[in-house]
Design a protein around this nucleic acid. Sequence first.
DNA 1: CTTATGATAATTTTT
DNA 2: TTATCATAAG
Length: 703
Amino acid sequence: MELLDGLNEPQQKAVTHEEGPLLILAGAGSGKTRVITYRLAYLVKERGVSPYNILAVTFTNKAAEEMQERVDNLLGYSTSSLWIGTFHAISVKILRQDIEHLGYDKNFVIYDTREQEILLKNIMARLRIDPTEVHPRAVQREISRAKTLLKTPERYLVKTGSFFQEAVLKVYQEYEKEMKKSRALDFDDLIMKTVQLFVYVPAVLDRYQHRFKHLLVDEYQDVNHAQYRWINLLAGRNGNLCVVGDPDQAIYGFRGADIKNILSFEEDYPQARVVRLEENYRSSANILSSAQELIQWNLGRKEKALRTQRGAGPPVMIREFASEGEEASFVVEESQELIKKRQYQEKDIAIFYRTNAQSRILEDSLMKAAIPYRIVKGLRFYERKEVRDLLAYLKILYNPEDKLSLQRIINTPRRGIGKASWEALLDEAERLGITPYEALSRSQDIDLSSRQRSRLQKFYELIEDLRREIAGNEIDHLAHKVLGKTGLMRELEEEGTDDARSRIENIQELFNVMQEVDGVGMEALEEFLAGVALVAEIDTLDPEKGGLTLMTLHASKGLEFPVVFMVGMEDGFCPHSLSTEPEEKEEERRLCYVGMTRAKDRLYMTWAHSRQIYGNRFSREPSSFLQEFSPETFQEEDPESSEGKVESKEDFPLGSKVLHPTLGIATVISKKGKGDKLTLTLAFPNKGIKDIMVDYVDLEVLN
DNA sequence: CTTATGATAATTTTT
DNA sequence: TTATCATAAG
């Protein structure tokens, strides 16, 4: 079977697995994407499964697009009936169809984190909750956490809670009411409402269960509880559920992802078949073994024996600098060197950092050196005021009940409708039990000066006028009308500053996105708005554009580069100073592992003795993670035999765990001497690094 | 209602 | 360093 040519044995097993649950434990660089796409193609081509009966869930839109493209290539035709998308995107599709069963309007808008925060602040102000005492951000996280655990306000607090929890409960209740009035759903709602739909309306669940005879979920290690239920319900008891993931790459715990979902898959689905992909096709031996040594420090792992066919390659290069400026210079100069020697092109090189704020100095240095680069910070684009303003207009046109968008645009650009008028409008709506937009339509009745009333009236007519433009028009045409009729564009053009010009450019960029939407009218508007709400950072990485790539460690997941620089490898960044709990530390270590395993040939890890943060200069210490592996394990000269040596001849392979009679469990990080002179360098999680002569101590090999 | 000013706060990762 | 917020003057 040609489809299986070039796949190794476990890969083939994963691809050809027939019925029932399947867990694919895919180590870093083990050809995971290949296996998934081949499996999808295999089901269709060899098993005669209709694409219509398959659902594939990915983590980002980018992954979904790539997968769609690769499956189409393998099949030789395009499969539009095969659903591939993120949890959120697929949930939107389902909810548009069926959410009315839950008493919600199907023309909902999606509120992103930013809008959610504004709404929460509004509510807290109204409830007179002091934001310095109860932080809106904390409330936001708590509500998100609750939704992730499928807890409605009614189920949020069964008993009495802390002061904070009681406050959250009040806000949460109000928040839900407001969201419903605005016909809005937040990210967590998309998942939770879908689960509720499945649970409360069995006919709907039944329909989708029948449709999706095969389910495939990528990045299963980063699934949260709501998503777990979502999958679990669709798969039914004995469904053909294939999940793919790597517990060592679970890095979204902060967002509610629960690594236990993948760790206990075999208990959830006792008939599950497990396939391990342990052959690494990406990294050279030194990089891989260093990463392996690092990850060994995490407890409670599913042990994996990653192997590579590749040569030793250079060791992991750890460099220290006096300041972040010198660190950036090194990255730039080293990159130039690699490019000059024609070993690599710009696009082969990536720089990873922990926080977005770290990118600035790197960008400056690259710019000065005239090195082209592309950066993953897409959300910043949608954070821009001008972009959000235009989007708010479009959202109001789609759904006039969207109070937050109305609030945003009612006086943008300035039209003399200030806080007092807005509040009078809200009071009127409240008094009559109607929505703000309805109140606006009867603005003449509001208790305001006739001047203010006519301003409101004019605004209402503007929106109504624009609403008539929706039908039959393409989205970019509609947006042009908005820019023209509202005076948004005129305001920018008249300003004439550099800043204004760059804002016009941003709007132009938004038009590029609009042009990708086919169709006209309400449907196109709907598709565009949902698409915009659900973009991930990484989705904005332009694959066409060349240049060095900059991104956060989180964004790097799933990618690979011949050369990787990991900068800012300091305590405080990596692990991050806000990650203090042991579980959080382990997640930080996994994040570091993810970064390291992106590198194919050369991996640099750098840190600076001093660094400016929030305007102040701080003294920094190297990341404790750097001490958890020895950079050089394999000799360059003879990669084949040195690999063999480690594997076969010794009792204490590098990276293995041993039990020391008094000091406890440790990891073997290097070895010296032979026979009874054999000395191991052992790394103890709490007691540091010690040299131990094997002959004197009874060491027990674990695993 | 708008604008300017300065205080103040908050700074992890993101669908 | 930056964004956001409150206050006071125009």
